[in-house]
């Protein structure tokens, strides 16, 4: 496989993650584009045989952090209808559910959102998530616990989640 094919194979998943992360089609496309350009120009730095997906997601994570740092805090929470347009509406409740989850994701701190998405959507192992985000495994777990619990509460109509139950 050539370098283009190897990277190209990951584009759909990078796009899915970027969309979920940003909640905005244009921002997601920009993020993917920047990630691809950086990966393309630094492909020689990738160790052949190592996990290309993890490498690409690491690049995307770093860019995302830079983007959000320089961007207005507000826009991080901006919700764009178009971003989660679903083609038809045969099942009203299912659609409402999708929209609610998308809205709830935007209310999650981005560091929790990243973990919830890398695990829940990307099916990445906790260890891989730790490597991609450059944080200890314990931090991955605590962000996952908080992120999921917060989403659950948001979706069940409890606005703020101060009473996170820690089950040991």
């Amino acid at each position: 496989m050539g370098k283009a094919e190897e990277i190209t194979a990951h584009i759909p998943r990078l796009r899915r993650y970027a969309r979920a992360l940003t909640g905005n089609r244009d921002a997601a496309d920009d993020l993917v584009q920047d990630t691809l350009e950086r990966a393309w120009s630094r492909f020689h730095l990738w160790r052949h045989g190592s996990d290309l997906r993890a490498w690409l997601f690491t690049i995307m994570h770093n860019l995302f952090i830079n983007h959000t740092r320089t961007r207005n805090r507000e826009s991080d929470f901006a919700l764009e209808e178009e971003a989660f347009a679903v083609p038809v509406s045969p099942a009203h409740d299912a659609l409402v559910e999708l929209k609610q989850l998308d809205a709830a994701l935007r209310q999650l701190p981005s560091e929790q959102r990243e973990v919830v998405l890398l695990v829940g959507l990307e099916q990445m192992s906790y260890e891989s998530v730790a490597r991609v985000l450059g944080i200890p495994l314990g931090t991955v777990m605590s962000r996952l616990f908080r992120g999921r619990e917060r989403l659950r509460n948001l979706l069940h109509g409890k606005a703020s989640v101060s009473q996170l139950k820690v089950v040991k």
Binding site: P12, R13, R16, R19, A20, V86, P87, A94, L121
Partner: peptide, 9 residues
């Protein structure tokens, strides 16, 4: 999450 974002794939 999958139902929401898999279409992007």
């Amino acid at each position: 999450l999958h139902a929401l974002f898999d279409p992007v794939l």
